[in-house]
């Protein structure tokens, strides 16, 4: 029996269902791509205007910044908040009651949805990748950094899922978690460092953001890619990410244990 066969088949089923659901609303896809490119274009132009012929700002060259912004924008496409949205939806409609009686843990179901949502979007990397590289810039990193970046990317994906899982779990206590979720979704671009890399932020803001887990999803992996660390420092971001994962898994479990006692199924 291979390892793959030993995994609970519910994982595959849920991942497949999420992907099919995503493509059921495929008319939205070109539109989302378009909005993504417009937003990214504005970001690039504003930064270009800010550089205005200067070769460097705070030791960061325009080329490095452009690669940073391009890759960060792509990160954000794949790091969805679907897990928070779904948990909130299941709790507020009472559907969570069905989820709980399934022979597959609730959080696992939600994680499968998150995986499915990322996988289903992978296909349009074929369009978005080159498009982003044209609007922005995307040079390959040094081979050594590529491996580290991919490892960091995986950790970043997990941190992102855990953050949104926490926000979703709030819905067991707060009836309308929508506002909080939307607020985080909007603030996210800023908090993760996708709009302004942490190197270029004012000190006070940088110190605050460094103490939060958000930067582990975009800033840390992308700064590995753009080779801003050298020597042994390259491993630091990975350690930070691993630390955040440990902490967030611990708190998620603690929150989930309490959440199970808070379930209110509205309308029976």
């Amino acid at each position: 029996m291979t390892i793959l066969q030993r995994i609970n088949p519910a994982w595959w089923e849920l991942i497949r269902v999420t992907a099919r659901e995503f493509y059921a609303y495929r008319a939205q896809i070109p539109l989302s791509c378009l909005i993504f490119l417009v937003q990214f274009y504005v970001l690039r132009v504003v930064w270009e205007a800010a550089y205005a012929g200067r070769s460097e700002v705070d030791g960061i060259s325009e080329q490095v910044l452009l690669i940073y912004l391009t890759l960060s924008a792509l990160h954000r496409v794949y790091f969805s908040e679907v897990i928070a949205w779904t948990i909130q939806q299941r709790v507020s409609t009472g559907a969570v009651a069905h989820d709980l009686v399934r022979p597959f843990g609730f959080l696992k179901q939600m994680m499968a949805l998150q995986i499915g949502s990322t996988i289903s979007r992978l296909a349009f990397l074929i369009i978005l990748g080159p498009a982003a590289a044209v609007v922005g810039s995307l040079d390959p990193p040094a081979p050594a950094n590529l491996g580290l970046y991919l490892a960091s990317l995986l950790l970043a994906w997990i941190v992102n899922m855990l953050i949104w899982m926490h926000i979703g779990l709030l819905s067991f206590w707060v009836v309308h978690v929508n506002g909080i979720r939307a607020m985080f979704a909007v603030a996210n671009g800023f908090l993760v460092g996708a709009l302004v890399p942490l190197w270029l932020m004012p000190d006070a803001l940088r110190i605050v953001l460094q103490a939060l887990p958000f930067q582990a999803t975009v800033f840390l992996p992308v700064s590995i890619y753009t080779e801003q660390q050298t020597g042994r420092d390259v491993l630091l971001p990975l350690l930070q990410q691993a630390g955040w994962i440990g902490l967030l898994v611990f708190t998620a479990n603690a929150v989930w244990r309490r959440a199970q006692h808070k379930i209110v199924v509205q309308g029976g």
Binding site: V46, W47, A50, Y51, A52, R54, V57, D58, H176, G179, I180, A182, M183, V186, A187, G189, F190, L195, V196, L200, M201, P202, L205
Partner: peptide, 24 residues
């Protein structure tokens, strides 16, 4: 939270400009 959201949503765009233009 929703009022705060309105505030955050609209001013965050500006926070970005503030940081970027503040640099240069």
């Amino acid at each position: 939270i929703e009022v705060a959201f309105g505030l955050v949503f609209q001013t965050l765009g500006f926070a970005f400009i503030w940081v970027v233009v503040g640099q240069v």
